[in-house]
Design a binder for these strands. Structure first.
Lengths: 136, 136
DNA sequence: TTAGTTGCAAACATTTTGCCGAACG
DNA sequence: CGTTCGGCAAAATGTTTGCAACTAA
C-alpha cells in the first residue's frame, strides 16, 4: 500500500510519534500500544500498526530489521548499531564509538548486487546478566 | 522445551534432515514441508516445526537469525555469511572469502555483556535484478 | 468538501501445543 | 517395554484488511 498524497497529523499519529521518540527501548507495536492507550484509551492496535508503517515509509521513524518474529521500531532515524539481548529479546543502542566496522575483503554472492549489510550485536542485557535471565 | 534424553532417528526426521541438507536455498519451514510432503504425503507441518527445532537445538542444523517475519533454516552449520534479497526475501550463501569482518573499536552498551554479532548482507538477487523484481 | 484516517472485528500468516495412538531402540 | 515421536486439530502469536463513520486540511 503506497503512501497517500498527503499525510495528516492526527491526534493518534502525533501521540504515537511522540511516545516512540520518547521511549529509548525500541518498542514493539504492542508495547507502543500499551503506552499510548494510557493517554488515549480507545485507540486500536490496528491504528498503531498502520501509523508505524506509514511513518516508517515516510522516513520519519525506523522499522528495525532485527532478527526475531516481532518487529521493533525506533524514533531515531540515524543509522546506529544495536545490541539484542539473546535471552529476553530486548534491543538497546550501542554507545561510544558508533562507527560501523570496516569490512575488508567483501565476500560475494553469485549474481547478486550487494547494496550493504546489516549488523546487529548480540549480548546479555543487565537484567538477564545477573539472575540467570528469564527467557521471554 | 528441553531436548529429550535420547534422540531417535525416525523416518520423518531423517527425511527432513536429508532434504534440508540437499537444498541450498535456506528454506522456510513451509518450503521444507512442501518438499518433504512429496515423499511422505501424510507428514504434518507440526512435525516439520518440531524437528527443525530439535535438530537446531541439538546443533545438527542452523536456525538462521535473518531479519523478517519468517524463519529460515540451513543444513550447513558452519558459520558463513548470507545475503538476503531485499526484493524477494530469498537468502543465499556468500562465496569467496567468508572471513568475518574485523571490527575495530568495538562499540559498547551500558551493562551489556557482548557475545558476538550477526552480520547479514543485503542485495538484489539475480532474478530480481533483471526485470525490476517482484516484491514477494 | 473530500481524501485520508480511525475503531472495530474479522481475516491472515506463522509457529506452538495438547492429546493419544504409534513406533524406535 | 518405556520413552520419544507423529498426526491432527486447536490455540497462540503477530500483523493485515474491509468497512462505515469520522476528521484534518
Amino acid at each position: 500500500m503506497p503512501l497517500p498524497q498527503s499525510l495528516r497529523m492526527t491526534r493518534q499519529r502525533r501521540l504515537i510519534l511522540d511516545e516512540l521518540r520518547r521511549l529509548k527501548t525500541h518498542p514493539t507495536a504492542d508495547e507502543i500500544f500499551q503506552v499510548v492507550k494510557r493517554r488515549m484509551p480507545r485507540i486500536s492496535l490496528a491504528t498503531i500498526y498502520r501509523n508505524l508503517d506509514i511513518l516508517s515509509q515516510a522516513g520519519v521513524i525506523q522499522k528495525l530489521e532485527t532478527a526475531g518474529l516481532q518487529r521493533r521500531f525506533d524514533g531515531d532515524i540515524s543509522q546506529h548499531p544495536h545490541v539484542r539481548c539473546v535471552k529476553c529479546g530486548r534491543v538497546d543502542d550501542m554507545t561510544g564509538d558508533a562507527r560501523p566496522p570496516r569490512i575488508e575483503r567483501m565476500p560475494r554472492a553469485e549474481g547478486y548486487a550487494i547494496h550493504g549489510y546489516r549488523l546487529e550485536f548480540l549480548g546479555t542485557c543487565p537484567q538477564c546478566g545477573k539472575g540467570g535471565g528469564n527467557i521471554q
